[in-house]
Design a protein around this nucleic acid. Structure first.
Lengths: 259, 259
DNA sequence: CTGTTCTAGACGTCTAGAGGAGTTGCAAGC
DNA sequence: GCTTGCAACTCCTCTAGACGTCTAGAACAG
């Protein structure tokens, strides 16, 4: 296994932090490459002469920093960082859809990574107060829910949930897992809802445990939250899209007129 | 102590997650107010009939989410959150400056909190490659640097560093700690640089130790980074402003035309 | 050759206990 | 009245061991 040195009992830092530090150095120096497996808990116990929980605590540190990903039954691996995606403010421009590409695919082409979507789930539910307000519907109205997860080079980078009024989505391909070329925005425009503008609310926070699982990140990686509301030319709110993105994988670009 | 319910052995989630969930609910519902002390490890052990490490693991979950702060020897406390500031996309509109208010003051008036600025430092330095590129200057050109920290209700919420080409700022009030009514954007427009647009790049990450100190936040709280570049009507880049904001204290709003 | 079963090794969860260090409040002593 | 010292309570670190689930590959049966 990788040579890591020994615990210095005169060091004021506790052993678990020293072990975490040695592993961190190995990762940052490239001795442990992205995707490489860390020494197993048993190996750390033997190497450093500590108990299992102490070895686990060291690994816990690195998980908290998002440097490693544990995989049940296989081992702990150095996290391969997803490529940074720059999201331009024109990413929903009609000209991208006209080429038959949904926004996510269009970006991937530009940035040169392999896009993917999985876990697409379609359902119907009654709108929560927040969603109803954003869609300007009476609270309790039924809405179509589109849940999905986006991948870049095979790694999850974003989960998104869209809400559309049933009145708009009912009986359209929007209810299908694959809504066809250009995505749901193309279908909305075909249905007469020519899009006029989007409003986005951007925030950041630590992920919930569910989100950590879905995005395959440790508890030390923050997420960007973007809530986008799409309005058509009649200023009708036609979609609310709630997205949670792996923060280090994104840079959002906006253009703001000075007026 | 606070009533929290019991562990459900038929629940597929492990006990530590159930305990964390109950505590999280208590925090989110306000049963445990900001600043309140959580039940001690001993209390959790007794209440739920679990071992010490299990109780600690539950608290560890909440620490990773930034919901609580442990204080050695005192207890674990619900993190007091600063008020959320919603930043509208028109926050730099000329009409706000015309009232003699800088952007930060105008927002504070609207949102009803007490604004403050401290640690204003003015200096000159040679532009780093990144800054020079954004200002479209030759690398190594001298720039004016304005460093400052913003407070909301006395708590720091943002640190900002502005870079301006010396050619533009030289000999103007922009070199003074207090640039006068309307802030530096008002001075730029007086100097003939009528502002046309801003571009903003938004990201999020964990803070560096320096930033944690300046923003008075503990580990577990992410920051939002916003890099804003201001362009005048001749498309000249007149300012780059690099800001680091306490993430939970902000919601950024943007309007994006569909084109 | 294929499909199943077994097994070793990996991480996940939990228990029970120990000593350490920081904080606080109270009681004893000055 | 003030200070000192102690005790109780807090979280921090570590140990040793148990059982569970998951993965992957080897061994086996058909």
């Amino acid at each position: 296994m990788v040579q890591l040195g020994d615990i210095d009992r005169s060091d004021p830092r506790p052993p678990y932090q020293q072990i975490a530090g040695m592993l961190r150095s190995a990762i940052e120096s490239g001795t442990l490459e992205p995707g490489a497996r860390l020494p197993s808990e048993a190996a750390l116990m033997e190497n450093f002469g500590v108990a299992r929980m102490t070895a686990r605590q060291a690994i816990q540190e690195l998980r908290g920093e998002g440097l490693v990903i544990p995989e049940h039954g296989r081992g702990v691996f150095v996290r391969p960082m997803p490529p940074v995606r720059r999201l331009a403010s024109d990413r929903f421009a009609r000209r991208h859809r006209d080429a038959g590409k949904a926004a996510f695919i269009a970006e991937a082409d530009k940035a040169g990574y392999q896009p993917g979507v999985d876990r697409i789930e379609i359902s119907r539910t009654t709108a929560t107060e927040t969603i109803a307000e954003r869609l300007r519907l009476p609270a309790g109205d039924e809405v179509l829910v589109r849940d999905r997860r986006y991948l870049a080079n095979g790694r999850p980078v974003e989960v998104a949930t869209s809400y559309l009024p049933i009145a708009i989505a009912d009986g359209t391909p929007i209810e299908e897992p694959d809504p066809g070329p250009g995505g749901i925005y193309a279908r909305l425009e075909e249905a007469g809802h020519t899009l006029a503008r989007f409003s986005e609310e951007v925030g950041a926070r630590m992920p919930t445990p569910d989100e950590r699982t879905a995005l395959e990140i440790g508890p030390g990686i923050p997420v960007l939250t973007v809530v986008r509301t799409a309005y058509d030319v009649n200023d009708l709110a036609v979609e609310v899209c709630d997205t949670v993105k792996v923060a280090p994988a994104y840079l959002l670009e906006y253009d703001v007129p000075a007026q």
